[in-house]
């Protein structure tokens, strides 16, 4: 779980943040409701998770709420890994 959190954080920083962004990303930092990632751009995060963890996230579950923090993203991935 700790590894997964770090992998996802690294992806979010690399994919969404600019070098001059002064944002400390913790497990509970809201990334969508705060505007760091918009719902349109969320698609690349979904594709990354599906490829990295070999899962398929249905649109009904890949919601802005589920993708709002590293913690909630991990919970969603764990749920699908357990299936």
């Amino acid at each position: 779980m700790a590894d997964m959190k770090e992998v996802i954080k690294e992806y979010i920083v690399d994919e969404y943040l600019d070098d001059d962004d002064d944002i400390e990303l913790t497990d509970t930092t809201p990334i969508i409701s705060s505007g760091i990632v918009d719902s349109f751009s969320m698609v690349s995060l979904k594709a990354f998770l599906e490829k990295k963890y070999g899962i398929s996230l249905p649109d009904s579950e890949a919601t802005p709420e589920a993708f709002d923090t590293v913690q909630s993203i991990c919970a969603l991935v764990q749920k699908h890994l357990a299936k």
């Binding site: 969404y16 600019d18 349109f40 751009s41 698609v43 690349s44 594709a47």
Partner: peptide, 9 residues
């Protein structure tokens, strides 16, 4: 399919 890139990057 669609994907996005950082603004003007």
């Amino acid at each position: 399919e669609y994907d996005t890139f950082k603004h003007m990057d």
